[in-house]
């Protein structure tokens, strides 16, 4: 993530000509500074850039920080979950590489979002919360592999819905939107893999995609993760009527978003 690149994409969210002028002239100044010494400019960024941005852009930045800190909270949860699972030795040997790869991605997301929030947007990245993956003693993911897989699926499918729900909230910033979309599809790949792995092991009969709002064999407490996935109305059109394709397949073909409150409600089960 290149700061100057990000600045280029920032919109002076104002119709006031003077404020626009101020934004562009200051951005240009940072470009010139960057030309003189990129390294120095990057180091000076948190102090320099924020005081120079017009207040309208600051407000925009604050909302980006809020969204990205929310995403960062979820990435902390996912990373810690996989790291603890790997450390506990609960994962079948044959599947180790899969979960190490997923762990690596979640750690990369933690580091990336921390960097963007802290060093590009000049905010305070959220610290890792304390997690209780037993959800008050209800689950044993680090001693029981099927439970580990079940919660992994729950977290990945939640992650997909969470990022999808934020796309519209970061769309004014092309770089942040593109980064969020690029994480979103990675979470979807993870979800597909873990879902199919559970079925291959005979623990469920689900597919890589979500049919209706089915939780399969997951615990009833996970229903909120799948509620609303049975939607067949898109752009005001009932796609089953439009195509004659069965409702199961249509619901599989579109994933649905969750808003922040819904996601944090789900995640709160696992906060200590």
């Amino acid at each position: 993530m290149n700061l100057l690149n990000l600045l280029d994409k920032m919109c002076p969210d104002t119709k006031n000509a003077d404020e626009k002028e101020l934004f562009f002239s200051r951005r240009e100044a940072f470009h010139r500074f960057g030309d003189m010494s990129k390294k120095m400019a990057m180091a000076a960024v948190p102090l320099g850039i924020l005081s120079a941005l017009p207040k309208v852009a600051k407000a925009d930045t604050a909302s980006l920080i809020e969204v990205l800190n929310y995403a960062l909270t979820l990435e902390h949860l996912e990373y810690r979950y996989y790291q603890m699972g790997i450390d506990a030795g609960v994962i079948d040997g044959a599947d180790t590489a899969i979960f190490e790869k997923i762990r690596d991605h979640e750690l990369a997301h933690v580091n990336f979002l921390t960097e963007v929030v802290g060093n590009v947007l000049g905010g305070d990245p959220v610290m890792e919360p304390e997690f209780d993956f037993t959800a008050d003693g209800n689950f044993s993911p680090f001693t029981d592999y099927p439970t580990f897989l079940a919660l992994s699926q729950a977290f990945e499918d939640t992650g997909v819905r969470a990022y999808k729900g934020q796309a519209g909230n970061v769309m004014e910033n092309d770089v942040v939107l593109t980064a969020a979309l690029s994480i979103h599809s990675v979470e979807a790949r993870h979800a597909s893999m873990v879902r199919r792995l559970r079925t291959k092991k005979g623990q469920d009969s689900i597919k890589g995609w979500i049919t209706e709002d089915s939780i399969g064999t997951l615990p009833a407490a996970t229903q909120a993760i799948y509620s609303g996935e049975d939607n067949v109305m898109h752009g005001g059109v009932d796609v089953t009527q439009l195509t004659g394709i069965d409702s199961g397949a249509v619901t599989e073909g579109w994933d649905e978003p969750l808003n922040k409150d819904q996601v944090l409600g789900i995640a709160s089960l696992f906060l200590a």
């Binding site: 997909v160 796309a167 979103h184 599809s185 979807a188 790949r189 893999m193 995609w209 994933d255 978003p257």
Partner: peptide, 12 residues
């Protein structure tokens, strides 16, 4: 966004 994650599930 609703469609791209399904394409990613397919791809995986």
């Amino acid at each position: 966004g609703k469609i791209v994650s399904v394409e990613a599930r397919h791809a995986a």
